[in-house]
Amino acid sequence: QTVHVKGVQYHFPNPEEAVKFALKVAKDLGGRVEFHGDEIHVE
């Protein structure tokens, strides 16, 4: 599972961890989380 944050990719073997990370980052940055297939983008 890959999380993209402002052009940087973070790889997580566990999808659940990836989602938790993405939600935390989005909250910290005041952004939103978008799901694109296997990828999660924080915009």
Rank of each mutant, 00 (worst) to 15 (best):
Q1G: 09
Q1S: 14
Q1P: 09
Q1I: 15
Q1K: 14
Q1H: 14
Q1M: 15
Q1Y: 15
Q1W: 15
Q1A: 14
Q1R: 15
T2G: 03
T2I: 12
T2Q: 04
T2F: 07
T2M: 07
T2V: 13
T2K: 07
T2W: 10
T2S: 07
T2R: 07
T2Y: 07
V3C: 03
V3H: 01
V3D: 01
V3M: 01
V3T: 01
V3L: 02
V3R: 01
V3W: 00
V3G: 00
V3E: 00
V3Q: 00
H4R: 10
H4K: 08
H4V: 14
H4D: 05
H4F: 14
H4Q: 07
H4C: 15
H4L: 13
H4W: 15
H4G: 02
H4A: 05
V5R: 02
V5Y: 09
V5K: 01
V5L: 07
V5N: 02
V5H: 05
V5W: 08
V5Q: 01
K6M: 14
K6H: 13
K6F: 15
K6I: 07
K6A: 13
K6E: 12
G7W: 04
G7I: 03
G7R: 04
G7A: 04
G7L: 04
G7H: 07
G7F: 04
G7E: 05
G7Q: 04
G7S: 05
G7N: 06
G7P: 02
V8S: 06
V8C: 14
V8L: 10
V8A: 08
V8E: 08
V8M: 11
V8Y: 09
V8K: 12
V8T: 08
V8F: 09
V8Q: 10
V8R: 11
Q9W: 11
Q9L: 13
Q9Y: 12
Q9T: 14
Q9R: 12
Q9N: 08
Q9V: 15
Y10N: 02
Y10K: 03
Y10T: 03
Y10A: 01
Y10C: 08
Y10V: 04
Y10F: 10
Y10I: 06
Y10H: 06
Y10G: 01
Y10E: 01
Y10S: 02
H11G: 04
H11I: 08
H11M: 08
H11Q: 08
H11A: 06
H11P: 04
H11T: 08
H11E: 06
F12T: 00
F12H: 02
F12G: 00
F12W: 03
F12N: 00
F12P: 01
F12Y: 02
F12R: 00
F12S: 00
F12K: 00
F12E: 00
F12I: 01
F12M: 02
P13E: 13
P13A: 13
P13K: 13
P13N: 13
P13H: 10
P13Y: 10
P13V: 11
P13R: 11
P13M: 12
P13Q: 12
P13F: 10
N14C: 11
N14M: 04
N14Q: 04
N14S: 13
N14Y: 05
N14K: 05
N14W: 05
N14P: 00
N14E: 06
N14I: 06
N14L: 06
P15G: 10
P15T: 14
P15K: 15
P15E: 11
P15A: 13
P15C: 15
P15L: 15
P15Q: 13
P15H: 15
P15S: 13
P15V: 14
P15D: 07
E16H: 09
E16T: 09
E16Q: 10
E16C: 13
E16L: 09
E16K: 08
E16W: 11
E16I: 10
E17N: 05
E17C: 11
E17A: 10
E17P: 01
E17H: 05
E17T: 08
E17R: 04
E17F: 05
E17D: 12
E17G: 04
E17Y: 05
E17W: 06
A18M: 01
A18R: 00
A18C: 04
A18D: 02
A18L: 02
A18Y: 01
A18G: 04
A18W: 02
V19Q: 08
V19W: 15
V19N: 06
V19I: 15
V19L: 15
V19S: 05
V19P: 03
K20R: 12
K20Q: 11
K20W: 08
K20A: 12
K20D: 11
K20V: 07
K20E: 12
K20F: 07
F21S: 03
F21D: 03
F21I: 03
F21K: 03
F21L: 02
F21Q: 03
F21A: 04
F21Y: 07
F21R: 02
A22C: 05
A22Q: 00
A22H: 00
A22M: 02
A22V: 02
A22K: 00
A22N: 00
A22T: 00
A22P: 03
A22L: 03
A22W: 03
L23M: 13
L23Y: 14
L23T: 12
L23C: 14
L23D: 12
L23V: 11
L23Q: 14
L23K: 12
L23R: 10
L23P: 03
K24S: 11
K24R: 09
K24F: 05
K24W: 07
K24T: 09
K24M: 11
K24I: 08
K24P: 00
K24D: 10
K24C: 15
V25K: 06
V25I: 13
V25E: 05
V25D: 00
V25R: 05
V25H: 05
V25G: 00
V25N: 03
A26K: 02
A26Q: 03
A26R: 01
A26L: 05
A26G: 03
A26S: 04
A26P: 00
A26E: 01
K27E: 11
K27Q: 12
K27W: 08
K27F: 11
K27N: 11
K27L: 11
K27T: 09
K27G: 09
K27I: 09
K27R: 11
D28K: 12
D28W: 13
D28F: 12
D28M: 14
D28I: 14
D28H: 12
D28A: 14
D28T: 11
D28N: 09
D28R: 13
D28V: 12
D28Y: 12
L29Y: 08
L29W: 08
L29D: 03
L29Q: 07
L29V: 08
L29M: 12
L29H: 06
L29G: 05
L29S: 09
G30I: 04
G30N: 10
G30P: 06
G30M: 07
G30C: 13
G30K: 08
G30A: 06
G30F: 06
G31L: 13
G31H: 04
G31R: 03
G31W: 14
G31D: 03
G31M: 14
G31C: 13
R32P: 02
R32G: 04
R32T: 11
R32D: 04
R32A: 06
R32N: 07
R32C: 14
R32W: 15
V33F: 04
V33I: 12
V33E: 00
V33P: 02
V33N: 01
V33W: 04
E34D: 07
E34Y: 15
E34G: 06
E34A: 11
E34W: 14
E34L: 13
E34N: 09
E34R: 13
E34S: 12
F35Y: 11
F35W: 12
F35I: 10
F35M: 10
F35C: 13
F35H: 05
F35K: 06
F35L: 08
F35T: 05
F35A: 03
H36Q: 08
H36I: 13
H36M: 09
H36S: 07
H36W: 12
H36D: 07
H36T: 06
H36N: 08
H36A: 06
G37M: 07
G37K: 08
G37C: 11
G37H: 09
G37R: 07
G37S: 06
G37N: 09
G37Q: 07
G37V: 06
G37T: 06
G37Y: 06
D38Y: 10
D38Q: 11
D38A: 11
D38K: 12
D38N: 14
D38R: 11
D38H: 10
D38V: 10
D38S: 12
E39N: 09
E39L: 07
E39G: 14
E39W: 07
E39A: 11
E39V: 11
E39I: 11
E39D: 11
I40Y: 04
I40L: 07
I40E: 00
I40P: 02
I40G: 01
I40A: 02
I40R: 01
I40C: 06
I40F: 03
I40H: 01
I40V: 04
I40M: 05
I40Q: 01
I40K: 01
H41F: 14
H41N: 05
H41W: 14
H41I: 10
H41Y: 14
H41G: 02
V42H: 00
V42T: 01
V42N: 01
V42S: 01
V42W: 03
V42R: 01
V42I: 10
E43W: 13
E43C: 15
E43I: 15
E43T: 15
E43V: 15
E43K: 13
